[in-house]
Design a protein around this nucleic acid. Sequence first.
DNA 1: TGGGAGGCATACAGGTCAGTCTCGTTGACT
DNA 2: AGTCAACGAGACTGACCTGTATGCCTCCCA
Lengths: 193, 193
Amino acid sequence: MADPRVRQAPRQRILDTAYELFSRNGIRAVGVDRIVAESSVAKMTLYRHFPSKAELALAFLDLREQRWTRDWLQREVHRAASTPRDRLLAVFDVLDTWFRRPDYEGCSFINTLLETGPSDPLHEAAAQHLAVITDFIEDLARQTGAEDPKNMAVQLQILMMGAIISAGRGDLEAARRGRAAGELILDQGAPPG
Amino acid sequence: MADPRVRQAPRQRILDTAYELFSRNGIRAVGVDRIVAESSVAKMTLYRHFPSKAELALAFLDLREQRWTRDWLQREVHRAASTPRDRLLAVFDVLDTWFRRPDYEGCSFINTLLETGPSDPLHEAAAQHLAVITDFIEDLARQTGAEDPKNMAVQLQILMMGAIISAGRGDLEAARRGRAAGELILDQGAPPG
DNA sequence: TGGGAGGCATACAGGTCAGTCTCGTTGACT
DNA sequence: AGTCAACGAGACTGACCTGTATGCCTCCCA
């Protein structure tokens, strides 16, 4: 359909299409045939680049980390504030704009975690990608001089994930509620003195 | 297999089996054939009692509300504490014992909410069942004399849902972390004076 | 100017899905 | 005793699933 000169390489087209479909509909709900059709690629081409749908899904999660976690969440948080504490709160401001997008699609890591069993490699991968976010939060928490940065990070991430679910059921104020609770956690875990 | 005299009525056997399979594996992952096989029922018998798998899933969510929300969560919370504030905190203690069960299966309402699209009747039903829990929390929050019981309830539920996700990735301390944050919310939202 | 790899299209295999149909049996109520 | 509805068993339909095989074309590079 597109000009062959600007047409992306097949592998990238597959990944882009898989990204769009998987992030918006979940992995299980999207068949390989649909990815093949919407990326205008032969089925054999997909299986030449990815040995199985599960491997494609793992590649999707990696891409999600790059685009969502790093290029979007972390970047926006760093742009929005400069002190560690403000950045921890900015996380919820960034989530707020996300939740209000009409095409809010939810967190692929949570979705994948829940739609796979504990023995599934995808389950482990999703948990790992969530842990990367934990580390990001923990790093900021440590910079605030918090007493227990790890615990504070997981607490804040519990708020983040809970807000993501709440937004998924239509709560447009989820991020603001999360931010208010996050402030309390930050105040309480602040360094003594 | 069982003695015919103690054998339950087919409809109940189907629902019991669906409850076990759906709550443990999710709705999409469980086929009608498996429910039929494990409940020792003819396929036509299932479709005589439930016009479709979706209707069976709706009945499952209703049953989940009865068994999980009412008969377990609300009952345990009322048994564990007597004042509204203590009961709000007891929610997290009850969750704590749940998370530590080796066969912890997660929240079917959240799972269903995430594995269905916004237009799916199951999505709406799951949201409704979550709202019942919101009302339960809000009622307790109102009894504490909180300034904004609705907002406090949703905040606490965000903590609950976030803890449920965190437990799903292996965080055994999720409920304790949630409780600590919940205390801060309760203190901050307490009635003035 | 070949040759080989990569890509496209299509058909196919083998399984599972939801849902329907048929038929034989059982059990309760008249 | 006879009737009828519910049930069990299993075959079947058509759709969809992941993954494979085949054949043709095109482009790049030696």
